[in-house]
Design a protein around this nucleic acid. Sequence first.
DNA 1: AAGAGGATGAACT
DNA 2: GTTCATCCTCTTG
Length: 201
Amino acid sequence: MTPVRLTARFYQRTDVVQIARDLLGKVLITQLEGQVTSVIITETEAYRAPDDRACHAWGNRLTPRTRTMFESGGRAYIYLCYGIHHLFNVVTGPKDMAHAVLIRAGEPLEGVETMLRRRNMEKIATRLTAGPGALGKALALHTHLDHTDFTDPASPVWIEDRGITVSNIASGPRIGVDYAGECAAWPWRFWIEESKWVSKK
DNA sequence: AAGAGGATGAACT
DNA sequence: GTTCATCCTCTTG
């Protein structure tokens, strides 16, 4: 099929958990530093204000950092984690609904050589793009791209549906959110069951 | 103004 | 399994 860029209609639905599942098998593309790089999304996590304590915007907390999550769906929410890693999220829902999907891993598709160089790696291995910090580095995603609108045709970051169908979706608790009380156990992490391109087994 | 800690990953032992 | 790199954000005072 002809690749189709996902539209505002896709992103602005109100069920962020469903969108996290729907993003599996979609293709995330960046055109940065003069290079096109892309991955098939293989692992995601849903984050949902106000009730989800693992979400940065928990309790609808509006701060300079979380501001982007309150925008209408179809933008990037990128933040710095542990002072090192640039974690990439897809903002979802209508304006003022602070929902986002963390993209945790992908299967390399285009621009493998570029991604290897950005990761200081010589040969391909799952750690190239499995894990949110690794993925961000491979695709040159950076906090200065926070707020980027994927539905703008001139955007350097976007997501396409290339007709890849995903039959087996596995789910489990999200990673690294043990501080979030009961919410930590919610099975809002999703991955393609048969894929090796996931951050943990 | 200061301090703690984080939606991680790499390099150790 | 443990350590730690590295810096921004948020909370507290």
